[in-house]
Every structure is written in structure tokens, then in C-alpha cells.
Design a protein around this nucleic acid. Structure first.
Lengths: 117, 117
DNA sequence: ACACTCCATCGACGACTGTCAATGATCGAG
DNA sequence: CTCGATCATTGACAGTCGTCGATGGAGTGT
């Protein structure tokens, strides 16, 4: 496993158009984008982001994801390690929620927020 | 190879928070984000986006990328097939340029552009 | 015609990824 | 305490990815 369990959310780096990326920044950002580079994980993140109360338990994700429970758990782990989601234990269930700041950070890297040169 | 050479840029899909992703949308978006999920490709894209005249020839990318010429060519191909960059032949050289619209499309998926509900 | 530069493709190899069945750990209910 | 439910972890396997050396094709200059 190449993952060293860094829980820092992706909120490190300058926008892509402003300057050449450092090696460290490129690696951190790549991990974030790689976490989005799978259809199942995008679906999971979409389910979390669109949930009314902001959090969904795993048992309600397995069905829509169309994958086995261990596979869903695996994808959630990757999203968690990329800082894109958080987990909270409530009794027997684990409730996952999207981290808005992390998505916004990645969005910032992809371009200027508005009319910046 | 799982790539079927679709040259359509990534400009297909609704923002992540607005609705659950369809399977097709998730696959297309995942390909776009996966193209960003590698440090070398992020670096290449950064070099293209920060170039003054908007385009860079491959010979000027190999050095900063820190990889062999075939490897750089391979990564540029992936970026091209994801619709994130374009290539133009000028004499012996191939000049690559970032596609601003593609980056903006992915940025839109990551969140509402402004004051959208 | 010839040599040289630039770049894409091929072939190969190790490493990583996505997937599932099986197992283990934790918690609530009875 | 025991049973059942929820979820993470393990082990295994096929497939994909990142990388490089070698090769090939196209264009330029002499």
C-alpha cells in the first residue's frame, strides 16, 4: 500500500494557471483528483453531496453504488484518505459526509474563481 | 487499452451537488479526473497553462517533467484523449496547449460557480 | 539523397487498482 | 451474555497504469 494515511484535506496548492507546480503539491493534488477518477467514487460523492441531511450511512450507499459492501468500504476509505469525506460513528452505523472545503480547494486549482487574468 | 479515443471534451455533466450522477456521466467525468490524477500530468498541464504564448512543444516539456520522452508522450496522449489539451504540428515540432473550457467544465462539476442553490 | 531532429508507437516489466468472498471487530437488542 | 446487524479488514486475482529502451515515421537542412 502506498497510502500513508495523511488526513490533511486537499487545500494546499495554487491554481494551475498561476505557476508551475512543485513536486509535493503535484503529488498531493494528484491524490485528490485520483480519488475522483473512479465512477463509483464519483457516484458515492454525489450521493453524499445531494443528501438532504448531509450525511448517509454505508448501508444506504451499497445499493445505489451497485458494488459489494467491502468494495464500497474500500472506495469510502480512499475518499476519506484524500480528505474529501468524513465519517462519524452513530451507534452501529457509520455516517459519511462530503467535505465542501476539499471540493472547493480542488475547484480552485482548476481555474480562477472569476475574472482573474 | 480501454480508451476508445473519444475526443469530446469533458463538458457533459451536472454539478456534483445538484443530482445523483448517471452511470454514463460518472464514467465520462471519472476519465477526466483520472487524467488529472497523476503528478506528472498535473505538472505538464501546469506548464501548458502558465506558458506565455499558450503552447509548448514537447521538447520543452521533457526536461521539466523529469521523465523520458516516451513517458511524456504517453501522458500527453492521455491528456489529449481526455480533451484537456490540444496538439498542433508546426514543422517538426508538436505544440501542446491546454483547453480552458475542459478545465472549467470539470471545475463546474466540483461545485456551484457562484450563488447557485 | 543523406543525415539529423522531433515525436509517437511498440514491447516489456513491476507496481498499483478494483473487485469479491471470507473473516473480524464493534455495537445494540433481547 | 448471546445473537444479529453494521461495517472494516484481509487475501486473492485479473486488469490497468507508469515507466523505460528500442524502433519507426515524418519533417528539416545540407
Amino acid at each position: 500500500m502506498a497510502l500513508e494515511l495523511l488526513d490533511q484535506p486537499v487545500e494546499c496548492c495554487p491554481p494551475l494557471q498561476s505557476a508551475a507546480l512543485s513536486d509535493a503539491d503535484a503529488r498531493t493534488l494528484a491524490r485528490g483528483f485520483a480519488a475522483l477518477g473512479d465512477p463509483v467514487r464519483l457516484r458515492l460523492l454525489s450521493l453524499l453531496a445531494t443528501s438532504t441531511d448531509g450525511a448517509v450511512c454505508v448501508c444506504d450507499l451499497v445499493g445505489p453504488a451497485g458494488r459489494s459492501q467491502p468494495t464500497v468500504s474500500h472506495h469510502l476509505r480512499i475518499l476519506r484518505e484524500a480528505g474529501l469525506v468524513t465519517v462519524e460513528k452513530r451507534g452501529t452505523n457509520n455516517w459519511y459526509a462530503a467535505v465542501p472545503g476539499a471540493l472547493e480547494a480542488l475547484r480552485t486549482v482548476l481555474g480562477a474563481p472569476a475574472g482573474v487574468v
